[in-house]
């Protein structure tokens, strides 16, 4: 009884600390991103605009330019964080993430083909990106299948597929010539000039991720066990992997369609959650962090990371994807170093 009480205390404390840090980071990034921009707006003007929206310029700048970008950034981070956690769980691979599985590049490649060759509309990007992401995921898993999806091989296969699609994108960029400058900005992952239209486009997928996360947390916990144990517990492993894998691909493609390919958030966010809650009582089946915690907290951490990264990107006037790579690259090297060969 005492032990349970002790665990609950630690559980509550570590979660509270992580949630508090994330909420504070998100709040800071949100407030600061409302202040940073080409128009010089005082805090009073921003608060006034938020309280009483009207047709004047400060109100327009806050409500139509800065707020949608900030909200979209948080949503993109949350969706990517959740997609990363799902990929890591269904592959039982700590190096798993949509970008390292080639999904992000595949989605981007398909969208670039659509834009350059077929002149697809904005609304078609999502479906085209999903097809590209699924194709890339299938290719990655197909290559790594003979090694029984060994984490390092799976990551190498994913990186090979990502490089393959990156080469394809380069070919298209060369072919598109004058279009290329715009494509380059989009391909680095950018939240610049995004509107409520983009927020509206991503919102259903953010909601889908949340619902899936809550609904299938238990299934994801069981998928973390070895296949025989999971099967004996009544889990249809392949069906769940396929369903959840497709969910992760669709979530990733949705973010690519509104913000371009943003790497590493899906990789980092779940790891930060695990690190933040390490050593406490939050251990479920197989000693893993239960997904009822991992998924929402990964979303929260992902949102905070993008919020901060985009704030820096906005100040520096560069696409947010660049800072995500700067954040994620070193951590990826660290995680690779910890993997058994």
């Amino acid at each position: 009884m005492q032990l349970t009480h002790h665990d609950d205390t630690i559980e509550l404390r570590s979660v509270t600390v992580l949630v508090t840090v994330c909420v504070v980071a998100m709040a800071i990034s949100l407030i600061m991103s409302l202040r940073v921009g080409d128009f010089s707006l005082s805090l009073d003007q921003i608060l006034q605009a938020l309280k009483t929206p009207n047709d004047d310029t400060p109100s327009f700048v806050v409500w139509q330019l800065r707020l949608p970008r900030a909200v979209l950034g948080l949503m993109v981070g949350a969706v990517l964080g959740m997609a990363g956690a799902i990929v890591q769980s269904i592959t039982r691979n700590p190096l798993g993430s949509p970008s390292l599985m080639g999904v992000t590049s595949g989605a981007a490649f398909a969208i670039v083909i659509g834009l350059v060759v077929f002149d697809i509309s904005y609304g078609q990007r999502l479906s085209v990106g999903t097809v590209g992401g699924l194709s890339a995921a299938a290719l990655t898993f197909g290559i790594a299948w003979q090694t029984r999806l060994n984490p390092v091989y799976l990551t190498l296969a994913g990186m090979s597929v990502a490089l393959f699609f990156a080469a394809g994108i380069s070919v298209l960029l060369i072919a598109s010539d004058g279009e290329a400058m715009g494509l380059y900005v989009w391909l680095t992952g950018s939240l610049g000039d995004r509107t409520w239209q983009h927020v509206g486009q991503l919102a259903p997928f953010a909601l889908l991720g949340l619902v899936m996360g809550v609904s299938f947390a238990r299934a994801l916990d069981l998928l973390m066990l070895d296949d025989d144990t999971a099967t004996s517990l009544g889990v249809s492993i392949h069906r769940w992997r396929l369903l959840l894998g497709m969910t992760a691909v669709i979530l990733t493609a949705a973010t690519v369609s509104v913000a371009g390919p943003i790497s590493f958030i899906g990789l980092i966010a779940p790891h930060i959650v695990r690190l933040g809650l390490r050593g406490d009582g939050l251990r479920g089946l197989g000693g893993q962090l239960p997904h009822r915690w991992l998924l929402p907290l990964s979303a929260l951490v992902g949102a905070s990371l993008i919020g901060i990264a985009d704030l820096i990107a906005k100040v520096q006037d560069v696409p947010v994807g660049i800072f995500c790579v700067l954040l994620g690259g070193p951590l990826f090297v660290y995680l690779i170093g910890k993997q058994p060969c």
């Binding site: 080409d38 128009f39 800065r66 239209q197």
Partner: peptide, 26 residues
Amino acid sequence: MEKLLQLDPDVILAFKGDSGPFAQHP
């Protein structure tokens, strides 16, 4: 687009499309 709003030029010359999401920006 915020910079463009801040500059608010009297005349804008644009090469290439005036359709798509960019043209629908508020």
